[in-house]
């Protein structure tokens, strides 16, 4: 794909360009924020001390990455309160994979989810390395640097879980439950805007191509572990040209969400509302202001 010319600074974008940049940033930021919010539920509840620290640390990474992306939405004048604490939950654009509650006490759920998510995240970061929007392009290396061990963590745990029958059954259940939602990671926010994201070169791979790449990685990995993927509604032979298949009723990207999300949003904004806050506490001016 030809290298596209860089887009101008945030305040010089046309309305259509800005809309495309915003859709892309909401996909990225909301995913990171919400998956981190879910991961923190495992704090002091993970099966071992090491895994507790590891997952907490991964949550912290993802919050850091969410902030790097929300920062770029702040370029357009939005405040942190508007973006996170006061945004209508019906306007968020994260995939419905990340908002699902964990099956109670099921560590395999956390691991499978993290595996599906982090493999997808890696592929989409690769497609942003040559983004035509300099502010996005610049932040990718830092995030990639911090992502490698997320996948390693999930893969190691999956291999361990697959060694015993009970663990393998749990992997299977988690796969069956989460896989349809994981496919929504690659769902469009809006077909026309997503096409514009590609045409502007904001991202160098379209969604369906990234989805095929992701399937090529994750499906064989599950199969090697002994997880049966036959019931998963895979696009026919991963062929981009035959890629129609059923997504869950709520895909998130288009702002449709499962009930679990509204409960989660209610919970993490509880204190903010309880204290009658109208803005996020800041002890200093944002040093990242451009």
């Amino acid at each position: 794909m030809a290298v596209k010319e860089s887009l101008p600074a945030p305040d010089e974008l046309s309305d259509e360009q800005q809309e495309a940049v915003e859709h892309l940033l909401y996909r990225l930021a909301d995913d990171e924020f919400v998956i981190a919010e879910r991961y923190t539920e495992w704090q002091v509840r993970s099966p071992t001390l090491e895994s507790d620290l590891a997952l907490s640390n991964i949550a912290q990474d993802e919050l850091g990455h969410a902030r790097l992306w929300y920062d770029l939405l702040e370029d357009f004048g939005y405040t942190e309160s508007e973006l996170v604490w006061e945004r209508d939950p019906g306007e968020w654009r994260h995939s419905t994979l990340v908002e699902q509650p964990f099956a109670e006490g099921d560590w395999a759920d956390a691991i499978v989810r993290s595996y599906l998510y982090d493999q997808a995240e890696y592929i989409r970061l690769e497609a942003l390395e040559e983004s035509s929007y300099p502010r996005i392009r610049d932040r990718v290396p830092k995030i990639v640097q911090e992502e490698d061990y997320h996948r390693e963590h999930a893969e190691n745990w999956m291999s361990r879980l697959a060694e015993e029958k009970q663990g393998l059954e749990r992997l299977q259940e988690a796969f069956d439950r989460l896989f349809p939602y994981a496919l929504t990671l690659f769902a469009p926010t809006d077909e026309e805007v997503e096409d514009r994201i590609d045409d502007l070169g904001l991202r160098t791979e379209p969604l369906d191509v990234m989805r095929e790449e992701w399937l090529d990685v994750v499906v064989p990995f599950f199969q090697d572990l002994g997880v049966n993927v036959d019931d998963a509604e895979l696009p026919e032979q991963y062929d981009v040209h035959h890629s129609e298949f059923e997504l869950p009723e709520h895909v998130g990207r288009d702002q449709s969400h499962t009930d679990a999300w509204f409960d989660l949003q209610e919970e993490f904004t509880h204190t903010y509302r309880k204290l009658d806050r109208h803005e996020a506490n800041r002890i200093m001016k944002d040093p990242d202001e451009a």
Binding site: Q60, G64, L68, K142, I143, R282, M284, P287
Partner: peptide, 30 residues
């Protein structure tokens, strides 16, 4: 680290300390 919990603390310290230097009137920390 992108998720550095000391971000605000460290940045405000740098801003204050640099601003305290004789000959510096204002600081833009990026």
């Amino acid at each position: 680290y992108s998720g550095c919990p000391a971000r605000e603390m460290l940045m405000s310290e740098v801003e204050e300390r640099v601003a305290s230097v004789d000959g510096v009137d204002d600081v833009n920390l990026r």
